[in-house]
Amino acid sequence: MHIRVQPEQFDAGAELNAFAQGRSDVGAVVSFTGVVRDTDGDLREMLIEHYPGMTQSAITKIAQEAVDRWVLADCLVIHRYGSLKPGEPIMMVAAAAAHRAASFEAADFLMDYLKSRAPFWKKELTSKGADWVAAKGEDEDALNRWR
């Protein structure tokens, strides 16, 4: 498992190549990259706060569950915090397994859990001011799919 929590930008393509490189034991690698979206054309900055003591352990727990449940050969989670600009990557996950169904499902599971169980909070800065992004009820409902 590779888990990184960092303020710096990352290159999702390079990360995916490095993750998938040199393996002959997997038949499927699925990745997802989350990007800062400027919905109304007015987003100046996204600020992501996190709980440093808890973040790494919460993500490790989620990733370990994915590895165990889908018998992953490996998985990758990168999540940024701090100041992000529209169009920049926020986070990425990648799951490597023998077959594609396991890789797709594990990546989907990782995303659902990172969204509402990893201690990050997003704030959007626009010309109108700063607003915390509210969690959506459907994000919590999404977790029920995996129970």
């Binding site: 003591g53 986070m91 509402s116 990893a118 909070w121 992004v133």
Partner: peptide, 12 residues
């Protein structure tokens, strides 16, 4: 030893 209060998380 440590208690933390916060709104529902918005990662991902």
């Amino acid at each position: 030893r440590e208690v933390a209060f916060f709104p529902p998380m918005t990662g991902g």
